[in-house]
Amino acid sequence: MNTVPENLRYTRDHEWLSGEDEPAVGITAFAGEALGDIVYLELPPVGTVVTAGDPCGEVESTKSVSELYAPADGEIVAVNPAVAEDPSLVNADPYGQGWLFRLRLTGTPELLDAAEYAALIGAEASR
C-alpha cells in the first residue's frame, strides 16, 4: 500500500498540495502507480488562472493519457522545469522532486487530510 505523507492535503482526483502560501502541486504515488511510467507532461504555463476541478494539463504514460485537474482556484506561479525535462521524476519521487507546479490560491480548496485520502485509495484499490 502507498505511503500517504501526513503533511500534505489531497483531492479526490489524486493530486496533492503542500502547505506553503504558494503550495506545490503534484500527483500522488497512487495515481502514478495506476498510470504506469510517465513519459510526457503538459503543464499549464505560469500566469494561467485555474479553477478547482477543471482540467489544466495532461499526464501521458505508457498506458494512457489522463487529464490533470486543478486542485484549487488560483494562478500558476511556477512550473517545475525538472519534470518537464524528465517526467519519470513523478513516478520516482512524487512528493519531492516530482512536484508539477506552484499555485497562488484565490479560494479555499476542499481537500482531504492524509487519513481521509488513505481511506479513499483503500476503497478504490479494493474495487
Rank of each mutant, 00 (worst) to 15 (best):
N2E: 15
N2H: 12
P5M: 09
P5V: 06
P5R: 06
N7S: 14
D13M: 13
W16G: 12
S18T: 14
S18V: 01
S18E: 12
G19Y: 11
E20K: 08
E20C: 01
D21H: 07
D21S: 15
E22L: 01
E22C: 01
P23D: 03
P23W: 06
A24C: 12
I27T: 11
I27G: 10
I27Q: 08
T28Y: 04
T28S: 12
T28R: 06
T28Q: 07
E33M: 09
E33K: 15
E33N: 13
L35W: 01
D37W: 05
D37R: 12
V39H: 07
V39D: 08
L43T: 07
L43A: 06
P44D: 05
P45H: 11
P45N: 00
G47V: 04
G47H: 05
T51C: 00
D54R: 13
D54M: 13
D54P: 10
P55M: 00
P55V: 00
G57L: 01
E58S: 15
E58W: 09
S61K: 00
E67L: 14
L68G: 00
A70F: 06
A70G: 05
P71G: 11
P71A: 04
G74M: 00
I76T: 04
I76R: 02
V77P: 01
N80G: 10
P81F: 08
V83I: 07
E85S: 15
P87N: 10
V90R: 02
A92N: 14
A92Y: 08
D93L: 12
Y95D: 06
Y95R: 11
Y95E: 02
Q97C: 04
L103S: 01
R104G: 06
R104P: 02
T106R: 01
G107M: 07
L111C: 00
L111I: 08
A114I: 11
A118V: 03
A119N: 06
A123E: 14
A123Q: 12
S126I: 08
